[in-house]
């Protein structure tokens, strides 16, 4: 049953986002682990489409916020406006009050606007004008960002990057997928026809199953060995934090669930490691120019499976 639901979801998404099976599974794993997702890539490779189709397939309320340099926190959180009928201020909720937000080009906005969203991500609630308002449940943020070498961007600081469970890159589709894209209908039309593959309670049940996947002592040993290596090796500027450790475990559980297993294997950790740890590790000293992919590859190669 679980497997069937997951497979349906994946199938439906991959009908629209072509040739990105691995990224779709990672994104799904991220959502099943109740984490937020950051998609980083060049414009036009399908970031928004992926976010959109995921929201629709999971049957969630969806809002999109286009981040620009003049975006204000109130544009995200909402604002109180004087209401003549009730002779008082009435709160008009912003786009953040929804189950899934697509924060498009998050690094185009100023840090002030970014932090408004990022606080909401961490707390699952927002405080506006002294009043704390809970956000709907479930609550997901899928943010996209352009590579930071592009002009007019405010790179997210490390503390805020850390709030995203995963960061994935889409990359160009392969030739076959691209040909299918060129020959097929416009994605916008296809999107309109997408029906939810999951009921809200089914999504909840899947999330619960994900957190129930068994992680043995041997597997925790492996995760700790990975953490210890990043903390001791001079290659990394900072080691992985305990929050990153939890992220690794949760993501690995979700990945195992998607793979149809009831226990986490080292392979699951290895599969999600680039997405979970890639944005948390930076090269140090002579390795400071190394890409996160190279840093992760070194980490994987250096730590033996216990």
């Amino acid at each position: 049953m679980t497997q069937k639901l997951i497979q349906q979801t994946i199938d439906q998404v991959s009908r629209i986002v072509l040739g990105k099976d691995r990224q779709i599974r990672l994104a799904l794993a991220c959502l099943l682990a109740r984490g937020h997702l950051l998609i980083e890539d060049l414009p036009g490779v399908g970031k928004t489409t992926l976010a959109h189709v995921l929201a629709k397939t999971l049957g969630l309320d969806f809002q999109r916020i286009q981040f620009t340099s003049d975006l204000l926190p109130a544009d995200i959180l909402g604002v109180s406006v004087y209401d003549r009928d009730s002779a008082g201020f009435k709160f008009h909720p912003g786009p953040v009050f929804t189950q899934m937000i697509l924060a498009d080009e998050i690094n185009r906005a100023t840090p002030k606007a970014q932090s408004a969203l990022l606080e909401a991500m961490e707390e699952h609630q927002v405080t506006v004008e002294g009043e704390t308002r809970p956000l709907p449940h479930p609550f997901f943020v899928i943010a996209t960002q352009n590579p930071t070498f592009q002009i007019g961007t405010f790179p997210l600081p490390e503390s805020q990057l850390d709030r995203f469970l995963m960061r994935i890159e889409l990359g160009y589709p392969d030739a076959k997928a691209e040909r299918a894209l060129l020959q097929g209908k416009a994605r916008r039309e296809l999107l309109a026809g997408v029906q939810p593959a999951l009921q809200p309670q089914e999504l909840e049940a899947l999330q619960r199953s994900a957190s129930a996947v068994f992680a043995s002592e041997a597997l925790l040993d492996y995760i700790q060995a990975l953490l210890a290596f990043t903390r001791h090796s001079p290659r990394y500027l900072n080691g992985l934090s305990p929050r990153a450790a939890l992220a690794l475990l949760h993501a690995a559980r979700a990945w195992a669930l998607i793979g149809g297993r009831d226990a986490v294997l080292p392979e699951d950790v290895q599969a999600i490691l680039p997405a979970v740890a890639g944005h948390r590790l930076h090269g140090s000293g002579e390795f400071s120019g190394e890409s996160s992919a190279a840093l992760i590859a070194h980490l994987l190669a250096a730590v033996p499976v216990p």
Binding site: L265, P266, E267, Q270, L300, A301, A302, V303, P304, V305
Partner: peptide, 8 residues
């Protein structure tokens, strides 16, 4: 390989 998991 030392870093190879059992399933792989």
């Amino acid at each position: 390989l030392p870093q190879e998991g059992p399933a792989d």
